[in-house]
Design a protein around this nucleic acid. Structure first.
Lengths: 343, 343
DNA sequence: TTATTTTTTTTACGCGCGCAAATTTTTATA
DNA sequence: TATAAAAATTTGCGCGCGTAAAAAAAATAA
């Protein structure tokens, strides 16, 4: 279809009979040129299928159209889902998302930020590892590049933070559990990787005390991301040695609960609300798989549509304004109780 | 630490007392300059922390160091896991992986390839959607850019294909199920998105006939990626209406099996090998969550370490040789039986 | 020491585009 | 139709680097 080879914008300008600066203007914003000119350019575009060189563009633009999106662990369907919706929003706004996962730990988190630095992003959306994060280096990055945090907060770092209101969501489920049966013990990791875990622990204690109940924490060893494994291992130990003080267990997150439920099943313990059940188990997060556990998991859903939307919007507005935030917006979204079979 | 601002390679050359072309040579291959020179550069590097501009590099290099990595659905932990290991290998080889997911369908798959085209990758690793893929457009892309397929084959497309030997793995589990109990029915989607599903169907039929058993296919409606939901919905229907002709169900993949197990549980059907069990359920893939179903899922694991490693190696060799493959290597790796509680 | 090889330096061009200022052309308004 | 405003064009610089050829310097071999 195309006989003369279009190698660059100059060639394309020549063949389409329009000046190169106007072509350049068109690619930066098709609406910025006259309708008739746009039509001529687009007609030529169909014929010759030219695309500007992205490296030349980014070398010369004051600001790229890249937005970094860093999550702690893409292998976790929970984060994969969030990343996916946020990616969609970034694309729709005409930016180019770059998805990175920090699964290997804080070094990789910093490495991710370093490789983002190399592509000079207009902004970054970061769900930090949390407790494990190298906060100083993350803060340093956030000084250079407009950065919005979500999911896990690092105090004072970045332009804004959007996350879940753990106080509200944990109180919600603690209240529910206390109202409908024995008060729950709280099952969690001793040294959780995620700062939300600390908030949830404190929220559990506070909620229990508010209800005149005695808090009881069960804290297991275990490092890393293999939450189901940890929940299963510790669940097995607790159940087979009859170490549970009540028949109700609130797990710090759904993945621990999934492991715990599996342990209960393997040990012949019936979980659920009914009369014939020996145990109630609840989680937190409304993990994609929590619907298919046996029994299905009662949990609290995080409002990740809002968290994602607000994070992206905030960053985009910041980028557009070409200046930094005057105040650091911290907004927490409420959870919703998801009642299912397990509690 | 650094008083004079290093804005580009020329500044850095001046400050380190070495000529710019030599600095350039160093960044393209640190081993290519004399030891003493390298030491001087690295000393200066520590002081001034300079990094070459990646856009300027890629604009001028004959070939970038980018490698595209496209999977059908990052929300599926199975693909997330594969992508993660392959990413690691690409990085170790000194290339820059770019991870994309085609979850929204064939249009996004093509959009992914288009955005990869824009960054002029040295090569691409592609797990196509399969049946739904726009094969002509994928093939066109693979003509332009060295592309290795994995997981799902598109006949004749790309330089090579690496995947699982569905014939072997399905026969393995069919043989096991027949040997230890009633012969299995095969539970699958009527119009599966993945070509492996077709291979598995055929492999099931062949394996059953080889064992002198009558194959029985149960094919459900349902589109998209929500396999657990489909498995649950259809499982509920089959169980509550007593439509199963045997007590053994082989699911086309683990995610269907997870939904099916959940349905069995909800309907009070005990699953497992034991005498007290009414049903046996098996899957295929050794999905990360298959270990934590109730009961844990008997399945076949795919050798994804080998598939990933061979795919990456093959592409890297191709890139290094700077020429296309003379023959299209198709290698299938064998599955391994994972015996657990469900069958 | 001299001759040879390897490495570095010098010089210079080109990549494909953004961007700015001044000029010209086209369109909208009076 | 004249006038003002908007859009397009011309001209030209600069971004930061890869790369090539020739000259110079350094390391190695004879």
């Amino acid at each position: 279809m195309s006989e003369p080879k279009i190698k660059n914008m100059e060639d394309f300008a020549a063949i389409s009979g329009i000046s190169r600066p106007t072509i350049s203007k068109y690619f930066n914003d098709p609406e910025s040129v006259r309708k008739t000119t746009r039509a001529r350019i687009e007609a030529a575009l169909e014929q010759y299928n030219y695309r500007p060189n992205i490296y030349a563009i980014n070398q010369n633009r004051r600001q790229t159209k890249n937005i970094g999106l860093v999550v702690p662990n893409l292998t976790d369907p929970f984060f994969a889902g969030i990343a996916r919706t946020m990616e969609g929003m970034i694309l729709k706004a005409g930016f180019n998302p770059l998805l990175l996962s920090s699964h290997a730990g804080p070094e990789q988190e910093i490495a991710n930020l370093d490789s983002l630095r190399a592509i000079k992003p207009a902004g970054v959306l970061l769900a930090p590892l949390g407790r494990a994060s190298d906060t100083a280096k993350v803060a340093e990055f956030a000084e250079e590049v407009p950065t919005v945090l979500f999911d896990a907060n690092l105090e004072g770092v970045g332009e804004a933070f959007f996350g879940s209101d753990n106080d509200q969501s944990i109180e919600l489920i603690v209240e529910y559990l206390c109202r409908t049966g024995e008060p729950p013990v709280f099952f969690e990791m001793k040294s959780p990787i995620n700062p939300n875990a600390y908030k949830r622990r404190a929220a559990y204690v506070a909620a229990m005390e508010r209800l005149d109940q005695k808090p009881h924490l069960i804290q297991t060893d275990g490092e890393g991301w293999d939450f189901e494994e940890i929940g299963f291992r510790e669940g097995t130990r607790l159940i087979s040695n009859r170490l549970l003080p009540t028949n109700t267990v609130l797990c710090s997150n759904d993945r621990l609960a999934i492991g715990f439920l599996s342990a209960a099943y393997e040990n012949g313990l019936r979980v659920g609300l009914g009369a014939g059940s020996a145990l109630r188990v609840a989680g937190h997060d409304n993990h994609p798989f929590s619907q298919y556990t046996c029994p299905s998991l009662t949990t609290v859903s995080q409002d990740y549509d809002s968290i994602g939307a607000r994070s992206v919007e905030t960053l985009l507005r910041l980028i557009e304004s070409r200046q930094r935030a005057t105040t650091r917006d911290v907004t927490l979204f409420e959870g919703r109780l998801i009642m299912r079979g397990s509690a």
